[in-house]
Design a binder for these strands. Structure first.
Lengths: 123, 123
DNA sequence: CTGGATCCTTTCAGATACTG
DNA sequence: CAGTATCTGAAAGGATCCAG
């Protein structure tokens, strides 16, 4: 039996918990980057641009734990590690890309709104 | 002149910046709740369930600043304050709901993956 | 090349108390 | 009812050094 998603109490807390896991910028950016195909650690680091190695490795670990990505190690010297989306991760791509694209489309609008808001409140 | 969204460097930093603004659970939960129509402060607080009044008021302020919601005050006693989505906010609803629904649909899958992962790593 | 371990600073977020 | 102010602990995040 499935849990009741429409329950007014536990359902909301559940959404809250799950969004707490996936709704952060590093997670969304990584899933987005891996949409193009498997990538290695430093390729991800370079393509995302402003992520520290610590945040990248810790976020990747969490994503692997949640079954969203797979970590493939080829034990050569130097070792090669490739990250790719699982079926679950690929299923996640559509909503993630939709949100990211929305953000890009409306970036200027939001910036303008911020400027007006800050102006009104003589910041 | 518009910024170049397709530039490989600044474009990525721009996505990163915008996702840093909107990709957090309180923002998504509030936008989701306001999808049903305008709501008042304590109604939001009750419906979201586990949000503190501090986080609610500060997140609402940020959302108003970014032009995603509107704050309407009716100066009665006691005062009535109603929050509602702007056109921008309504446009944001689709991607937000898509991500939230994905999270709910796959909550159990992610939980199971976590359990297996933690088991393998004898946590 | 792919990280782990550590240190340090900043930000987030809850609890509590108070105001118009 | 709808918040603000303050205090405090937890978590995020960067910098640096080190290792397989």
């Amino acid at each position: 039996m499935q849990p009741d998603y429409h329950d007014e109490t536990s359902g909301c807390l559940r959404v809250s918990e799950m969004l707490g896991r996936i709704a952060n910028k590093w997670t969304l950016l990584i899933v987005r980057e891996l949409g193009d195909g498997p990538k290695r650690f430093n390729a991800l680091r370079r393509d995302i641009g402003d992520i520290s190695q610590k945040m990248l490795s810790s976020t990747l670990k969490t994503l692997e734990r949640d079954g969203i990505i797979i970590r493939d190690v080829t034990p050569t010297t130097p070792p090669q590690v490739e990250y790719s989306l699982t079926p679950l991760g690929r299923d996640m791509q559509a909503p993630v890309n939709a949100l990211a694209e929305w953000a890009m489309r409306n970036a200027d609008t939001m910036d303008a709104s911020r400027n007006r808001f800050d102006m009104r409140n003589h910041a």
